[in-house]
Simulated scan of single mutants.
Amino acid sequence: PNRAAVMTGLWPHNTGLVKNNIPLPGETRCFNELIDDPDYRTAYMGKWHLGDEIFAQHGFEEWVSMEDGYSPYYAKGRDQGARSSYHHYLVGLGKKPAKQGGKFSRGYAASLPLEQCKPKFLERSACDFLRRHRDEPFMLYINFLEPHMPFTGPLDDMYDPEEIDLPPNFNDPLEDNEPESYRKKVLSDARKYGTTEKDFRELIARYWGLNSQVDLSVGAILETLDRLGLADNTIVVYTSDHGDMMGAHRMVAKGVMYEEAVRIPWLMRVPAMGRRPRVIEQPVSQIDLVPTLLELMGRSEAAGNLPGQSLVPLIKGRKVAEDHVFIEWGIEPRVRAVVSPDRWKLCLSKEDRCQLFNLRDDPYEMTNLYDSGKHDAVIARLTEKIRIWQKKTNDKVEVI
C-alpha cells in the first residue's frame, strides 16, 4: 500500500490499495504522470508490487522488471508465460529454472554471486539509463527488493553476529494490554526465525549484509551521476516503503505500528538548495513526498487535491501547516495512528487493543499507557486529531 502512496501522493484508503497485490488503477496518476512532460525520459526499475508486475504501465517509457512471483495477480489477458527482465538476464548467463518453463525463485537469486544478484542488476540497468539519457531531463525510479525475505545473500558473512547488539526492547514482553495480533506475531515469528539471542544475531547480521548490497549499488549509481556531470542538477531521494522489526519485541518484518516498522529513512539531495547537511527534527509523513518533489520541480500546481503538503518550507527553516504524522493499517485488525510534535503516539483500533506511547520517555515503546488512566487528555486530543484527519481524507474506517 505504501508503494502506491509514494508513487501517487494518495493514502491507501484513497487508492483502494489497502493490502498487497491490489492493482493500481490505470486512471490513478503516478508522479511522472502528474509532471506530464514529454521532454522527460522516464523509467521504472525493480519491484513494483502494484499489479501486472512485469508489464510497462503508468506512462513509464522504460520498464525493467525483476519479480516473477506475482503472476497470479496479473490482469485478465496478460501473458502468464511472460518473464521479467531479470529472468531473461539470468537465462542469458546460462542459468535455468528448476522446472521447465518455470521461474527463478527469490531464494535462488539470493544464492548467486554478488555481481549476479538483483541489486547489481538494477545498478547496471540504472547506470545504463543515465548514460543513454545524460543530455535529457529524466525521472528514474529504482526499487530494490533487498533487504527482504529470504534474508540471505552473498554478503551473509560480512558482519560478525557476535559483535551485534540486540535491540534494547528485544526482551520486552508484550503484556496483556498490547494488541493480541502482535502477541500472536511474536509466536509466529519465533517459529519462522528462532527464539534465541544467537538466532536473532545471525538474522540481523544477514540483514545488514543485504543492506550493504543495496549501499554498494546506490553508491555506484551516485558515482555514475558524478562521472556524467549530472550530480549538480539531479534531485536524489532515498527512502523505503516500510521498516523491519529485526528483533525488536522479538518480532521480524512489518505489519505493526512500532517505530522499527513505521519509521523509515527519507534522505534527499537537492543541489539547488546547497550541499549543507540539514536534519528535520520533527516527524514528517511520506504522504508529503510527491507534493515536495512537485514544488522542487516547479510544478506545485500539479499537486491539485493531493492530501499531503510540500515540505520545502520546512527544509528552508520555516513551518508547515500539518505537524502531526498519520499512519494507517488496512488489514484487520485495522489501525489508525498519529504521532504528535511533542512525541506522543496514539494507535487506535476497534478490532484490537489500542496503544499510547510517550516516545520522548519511552523511545522503544515498552510501556503501553493507553489503559493507565493517567493520560486521558492526551488520548482525547490525539483521538480528535485522527477524527479530523479521517474526515479530511474521506477515511471511513471506524477505529474507536
Rank of each mutant, 00 (worst) to 15 (best):
D37C: 06
F357R: 05
R381W: 01
L203W: 05
G308N: 06
R124K: 14
R275G: 11
L306E: 08
V290P: 02
R334F: 00
R275V: 08
I388K: 15
H88E: 00
Y370A: 10
L166Y: 05
L17V: 15
V284A: 13
A377E: 12
L166M: 04
T234C: 01
P150S: 09
P333Q: 03
R83A: 01
M7Q: 14
G229T: 06
R106Q: 12
G107D: 10
E162Q: 13
A5M: 15
V399T: 02
T28V: 15
G229I: 02
L210A: 10
E259C: 11
R124N: 12
H133T: 11
Y40Q: 00
V325N: 00
F170L: 00
R263Y: 09
A261G: 14
S188F: 14
I315P: 03
R29V: 01
A272N: 14
P363C: 10
C117Q: 15
E175W: 06
P333G: 06
D157V: 02
V18C: 03
L93A: 06
W48E: 01
E123Q: 15
L34P: 05
P38M: 04
A303V: 08
H249W: 05
R227T: 09
I388R: 15
F170A: 00
I204T: 13
D288H: 05
G304C: 09
H49D: 07
Q213C: 11
A56E: 09
R269I: 09
F144W: 07
H249F: 04
C117H: 12
P97Y: 07
Y370S: 08
R275A: 11
E180P: 04
E175Y: 07
D323C: 05
P271W: 07
T195S: 09
Y74I: 10
L369R: 15
